Simulated assay, not measured.
Amino acid sequence: MEGSTRDSTPCDLIRRSDTIGTPGSSTRPASNQMSWNMMQQIQTSLEIEVFFAFAQREQQRLFIEKYNFDVVNDLPFPGRYEWVSVHP
């Protein structure tokens, strides 16, 4: 057995089996944790939706100012460009 090594767990890392919990588990009741997580997700989703809705409106506004064309309703506005409908 010369030259072989054996991996072992240091004694200070060994725990009793009754103290080992499931990864990610908590001492709080599952219902409270679930509702808290859901509130965070809903709030985060709402914040993301508001952020992107604002960004989209801002991009539409900039496009209308630059090209005098309403991309939402697919209609040209009077202005510096003359829009001609092209059908493929």
Rank of each mutant, 00 (worst) to 15 (best):
M1A: 07
M1S: 04
G3Y: 00
S4A: 09
S4W: 09
R6W: 06
R6P: 01
D7V: 14
S8N: 05
S8V: 13
P10W: 03
C11Y: 06
R15I: 12
R15N: 10
R16A: 13
R16H: 12
D18I: 14
D18W: 08
T19I: 10
I20W: 03
I20K: 03
T27V: 14
T27R: 11
P29S: 13
P29M: 09
P29D: 15
A30H: 11
A30E: 10
S31Q: 10
S31C: 08
N32A: 13
N32Q: 14
M34H: 11
S35W: 01
S35A: 04
N37F: 03
M38N: 11
M39H: 01
Q40M: 15
Q40E: 15
Q40V: 13
I42R: 00
Q43L: 03
Q43F: 01
T44Q: 06
T44A: 09
T44P: 00
L46T: 10
E47W: 01
E47G: 12
E49P: 03
E49C: 11
V50E: 07
F51V: 03
F54Q: 08
F54D: 10
A55S: 08
A55I: 10
R57N: 11
R57G: 08
R57K: 14
E58L: 12
F63C: 07
F63M: 11
I64E: 12
I64S: 08
E65D: 14
K66H: 05
K66C: 05
K66Y: 02
K66N: 03
Y67P: 01
Y67T: 01
Y67Q: 04
N68F: 13
V72Y: 03
V72S: 02
G79A: 14
R80I: 14
R80L: 14
R80A: 15
R80Y: 12
Y81N: 12
Y81L: 14
Y81K: 08
E82R: 15
V84Y: 04
V84H: 08
V84M: 00
V84R: 05
H87M: 12
